[in-house]
Write a protein that binds this DNA or RNA. Structure first.
Lengths: 262, 262
DNA sequence: TACATGCGTCTCTTGTAAGAGACAATTTTG
DNA sequence: CAAAATTGTCTCTTACAAGAGACGCATGTA
């Protein structure tokens, strides 16, 4: 995708949002609901997106009428509506890779017992598009749709393969380089990782997002050289070298099946 | 679409939409893409929703930036984006009935070999929310998200059970009463059907949407007396009485399992 | 009984976004 | 190769939506 439009001189935080466009408010509302993951009162919603109450009421009413939002059963709360589900299904239908990728992920997690995920770039961030929990007692599953800084993940390294330094820098903020445990990644190391991942065709990271897991990821191509998604397995950090190698082999085979012209 | 805010003295077709609100335009765009079911050029999109080209470009850019739409790979076409898929998944997650209903439908179609569907009311129209094709050589599957006039379907009769005459009339237009083959249903007959369906707890229609199938539907309750959805099987019209009865029995059992406080 | 807090609706003003239209650059058609 | 149609961008005007805030009605709580 070309992000060309916004030269991004510096997105300074205008404290006063003054007159905000209705559509933008709506986009914020949807994003807010996506993060809260639950129905919320309209008043709270207004606070949450920092919008005037009256405006929020108007917009919510439009959205509810349109079916993008629904009043939650109990009373005066709103959440996503059926329309969004239908549009989402349309997206899946129009997207072979996603459709087949979901199946493959489900299959992989059943087959290996490990948590398996399908990941894509989503407006410059790593996004778990579909995940299927493993059978382990402690399953570390992040919710679908969760967005995580690219440098925290193995998939992130693969998704950026093929981009030049400038493009990578544009996608990674300084905060992104700080791992959950406080360690700070060096940008050069990250870029080196990306290059290496691009060559080897897979990526393994250990103890990055948490101390107990490692992540095995392989790329899925939408065209030769173009990484459209990744599939990954989240396994205990003490998984043997041998099993790790086996799993990577398995992943690579499956990803090859998904890829187009890879 | 109802423009609810205006008192709607008479919904005459204002040829000139004058200054249309951006959000409404967006809603129309989404709805339009939902009906076309494919990526479309921005120019055509503008024509399709009857909006000025310049406005359409602006809105589409916003939506693409937000991830609700995506530029389709080949060039200058747009279609639904990943964000909508993610929001849709959020909806599913927050909606027990839909989640379990989908599973049940998949299961039913595998078990019986017939096409099975989960249906709900969506802004006053009957909507196929999920469907799973049967194993017959000729499978008559309507796409998910398809909206069909209520009187054409068995499910429609169940979904309106419990509403009074005025409410029903408000939901059914005159056009809706005209079947695909040109026959015209009498409103009174339809209302009588609804009442009957409400009492018997299931509904069978033969040869309504087409001449070759009949539709067996049962209600799913979200609260005692409140029909939230229906599950139905689409079977050949010459299915024996006996098998029909068996299938209805099966459906009723499964629907009961889905219902809450039924 | 007063007092505070939250909800839903309404009114009025003004900053601004929708839209008309011009433009250059392709691409298509005949 | 010219004529016609499309695509993406830009500018400028004004109709109108975003927002401030008041209001009435519920709750909750001292």
């Amino acid at each position: 995708m070309q992000d060309g439009n916004a030269p991004a001189i510096s997105a300074d935080e205008k404290t006063t949002a003054s007159r905000e466009k209705g559509l933008n408010r709506v986009l914020e509302i949807l994003e807010f609901l996506h993060t809260t993951q639950r129905a919320i009162g309209i008043g709270d919603l207004a606070k949450g997106v920092n919008a005037p109450r009256s405006t929020t009421y108007t917009l919510v009413r439009s959205l509810v009428d349109a079916g993008l939002l629904e009043m939650a059963g109990d009373g005066n709360r709103v959440y996503f509506g059926k329309k969004l589900y239908l549009y989402g299904m349309d997206y899946v239908r129009g997207n072979d890779l996603l459709r087949r990728g979901r199946q493959e992920v489900d299959h992989l997690s059943r087959e290996t017992g490990e948590t398996s995920e399908l990941c894509m770039l989503q407006s410059g961030r790593y996004t778990i598009v579909h995940s299927s929990p493993g059978t382990r007692p402690f399953r570390i599953s992040s919710a679908t749709g969760l967005q995580i800084p690219l440098p925290w993940t193995a998939s992130g390294r693969l998704l950026l393969a093929g981009l030049d330094r400038a493009a990578i820098e544009a996608m990674v903020s300084d905060d992104d380089l700080v791992l959950p445990d406080g360690r700070k990644l060096r940008l050069d190391d990250f870029i080196a990782d990306i290059a290496k991942a691009g060559v080897t065709g897979y990526c393994v990271t250990s103890g990055l997002v948490d101390a107990y897991t490692k992540c095995l990821a392989v790329p899925v191509f939408s065209a030769p050289g173009k990484v459209e998604a990744t599939m990954c397995l989240v396994v205990p950090i003490d998984t043997s070298e041998e099993r790790t190698a086996d799993l990577i082999g398995l992943l690579r085979g499956r990803a090859a099946g998904l890829s187009i012209g890879g």
